[in-house]
């Protein structure tokens, strides 16, 4: 298959290119948009790997929630990114150091699985091979059977969080005029129109 490497290079190049543009572009809104592009292309890479669940989570959570939140913050707050970027060269050595450490760690992790390949299948719930079961089915089979209690308990925690947020912040304002459709529809000409007999030269 020639198509798979082709798509791999397409997605990879676009990811790296848009990641560079995130830090290079002058307009912060463009940065966030390039970030979204990078997320989409990484999702494509995940699909090529057979990890479609991660790909969907990436799009739903990172693009749908996180990046849009960034966009809101960038557009709402007046952050002067040009000024922030003033000391770019000054911070370059520290940034490079952090980058190198991160790279070394990534290599160590990857090297670990290469050195000891038997570790790959030794989790509490090892992932079945991709050709036997799609990983969404694998996660579902685990989440809704073995961990169903935890899943439901987490749901209750989120429910309490939602109730709490509403209880502590929602205020019903007095005197706000709201539309009441049923009251509007129920009106008849008798209740809506008042017929007034006007005397000549008197006014109402």
């Amino acid at each position: 298959m020639i198509l798979k490497p082709l798509f791999f290079y397409l997605f990879s190049l676009l990811t790296i290119g848009s990641a560079l543009m995130v830090i290079a572009s002058r307009n912060p809104v463009h940065s966030v948009l390039f970030l979204i592009l990078a997320f989409f292309n990484s999702a494509g890479l995940f699909i090529l790997l057979g990890a479609e669940f991660l790909a969907m989570i990436l799009v739903v959570v990172y693009v749908g929630a996180v990046a849009v939140l960034f966009l809101f913050v960038v557009m709402m707050l007046d952050v002067d990114f040009v000024e922030l970027r003033q000391g770019f060269l000054q911070y370059l050595p520290v940034g490079a150091l952090v980058g190198i450490i991160l790279l070394a760690e990534l290599i160590a992790v990857l090297g670990g699985t290469l050195l000891a390949p038997d570790l790959a299948g030794s989790g509490a719930a090892p992932i079945p091979p991709v050709d036997q079961m799609s990983n969404i089915a694998a996660i579902g089979a685990l989440l809704y059977t073995k961990y169903v209690y935890f899943f439901q308990a987490a749901g209750m925690v989120l429910l309490v969080a939602m109730i709490g947020a509403i209880v502590l912040t929602l205020r019903h304002k007095e005197g706000v005029k709201r539309q009441d459709v049923s009251a509007q529809v129920a009106r008849s000409p008798e209740t809506a129109v008042e017929v007034v007999k006007v005397e000549t030269g008197e006014g109402i």
Partner: peptide, 19 residues
């Protein structure tokens, strides 16, 4: 389950403390 139970309880308690 220890942590989830504890968190469910605590979260509700934080809210009722400020109710």
């Amino acid at each position: 389950s220890l942590y989830l139970g504890l968190e469910l309880q605590s979260l509700a308690l934080y809210v009722v403390a400020a109710i």
